[in-house]
Design a protein around this nucleic acid. Structure first.
Lengths: 234, 234
DNA sequence: CGCTGCCTTGAGTTACATCAAACGCGGTGG
DNA sequence: CCACCGCGTTTGATGTAACTCAAGGCAGCG
């Protein structure tokens, strides 16, 4: 977890949050930020902790989830480069984080502490608009998940998770879209046991819809899965 | 659906949105609004329609839900007096409503059309902050539902729905908190069949946790249900 | 005082979780 | 190059919560 303050963004980097600022504001913001490197399984924020840090994933991947009363993780979404978290720090409401986030891959982030966030809020009149865009995004995504597949049968849920994940974190290999996901990660995201996930994946592999390797999945085409996710044989 | 433009709010009326404005801004806003009366089963907005109206429920009750691909409603939350909807109209993103809302009781609302909303946005610098608060509220509520009970067994879900509903729309009768909810409304909100809902309610009535009448439920105390909602016998 | 819509009950079915037990891929070190 | 080890993966047997469907009861309204 080294840190330095010369913030340089990777080429082609896009962020709803930063894009909502003027170039001038952006410069101010970057100057005030601290960059940190993160490692696998590192907890980036924990629900219930006081919100004192606004941050932005620069590289890597994180899992955003909520802890249920019985203790298990309810997966909400992936955290991807460009996504912003800890918004409560700036909104001031609620005063604590409402979700837990941990790193699935090593990577880096850009962070503003409480003081820096507040200074930023004063300096950047567009910041509220930018925040709105980010929050509305979250909300839209969640509602979409909820309404579209959260309560459908396991098979359709898993298909949807694969399709979404392919869009969000798929690489283009020459045999199709490649995904670095273990059965377990998929199972968590689709809210089922590893057993069920395995069976479905295996079935699809038999049908030629996908190819599995250890911790990696290759999808020649998304259309079949999209079909499955809408419901079978209609 | 009569309409007039002299907007008078009921005494004791609170709204996260309006409270985020200065008194002066509030006055401007109210002057620009149209008041309408609404009747049962009236559709107040429909997902997919172009977002051209920002509105505020003044009296009555509405159900906010999303339509799944297979056509059934996924209940998201109750719409209560003071709640604001059609935020996309002002945010400008997305440009369409993302949820469907219809009235469960007759009541009234206060609406701003697209032009009025935009004028409002220009006139009120605090409006972005107010919107932030509202959207963050929505988001928090949804995440809370998702993380806390959306994926628990039916009995716990139903218990939670009852507790939440009691807080949101309970009246204080002399035998306890009274709720105007049919079995079917509960079933929809807790995502189960009417049959399952009936069985659970009946069971609780046998245990003396609640009393049922046609379309109405009386809860002498919330604590038992709160116990059930956390999971049995732990 | 009948009728309509809400509510209740039971029997049969299904999807998915749970559990126990191995298998095999891919890295490591000999 | 081969043997080993560990984790991600696979399989089948079994249990169960909750849905489906069919049918009947009953409250409250007109």
């Amino acid at each position: 977890m080294k840190a330095n303050s010369a913030a340089a963004l990777p080429p082609g980097f896009r962020s709803t949050f930063l894009d909502g600022l003027t170039p001038r504001e952006l410069k101010t913001a970057l100057a005030a930020a601290r960059q940190e490197t993160i490692s696998r399984h590192q907890i980036l924020q924990q629900e219930g902790d006081r919100a004192i840090r606004l941050w932005l994933l620069v590289t890597g991947r994180a899992a955003v989830y909520r802890l249920a009363d019985n203790g298990d993780k309810v997966f909400l979404r992936w955290g991807l480069p460009g996504n912003t978290f800890g918004l409560a720090t700036i909104l001031g409401f609620p005063d604590r984080y409402i979700v837990t986030i941990d790193a699935v891959q090593e990577g880096s982030l850009l962070a503003w502490d409480l003081a820096a966030s507040q200074k930023l809020a004063l300096r950047c009149p567009n910041l509220n608009k930018a925040l709105n865009a980010v929050v509305a995004n979250y909300l839209g995504g969640l509602i979409n998940v909820l309404g579209t597949y959260a309560f459908q049968p396991a098979e359709q849920r898993l298909a949807r998770v694969l399709v979404e994940s392919a869009h969000q974190l798929g690489r283009n290999g020459h045999e199709g879209i490649e995904l670095d996901l273990t059965n377990e990660q998929l199972a968590v995201a689709a809210r089922m046991t590893v057993f069920t996930a395995t069976r479905k994946l295996r079935k699809w592999q038999g049908l030629g819809i996908l190819t599995k390797h250890r911790g990696r999945i290759v999808l020649p085409s998304l259309s079949c899965l999209e079909g499955v996710s809408k419901g079978p044989r209609t």
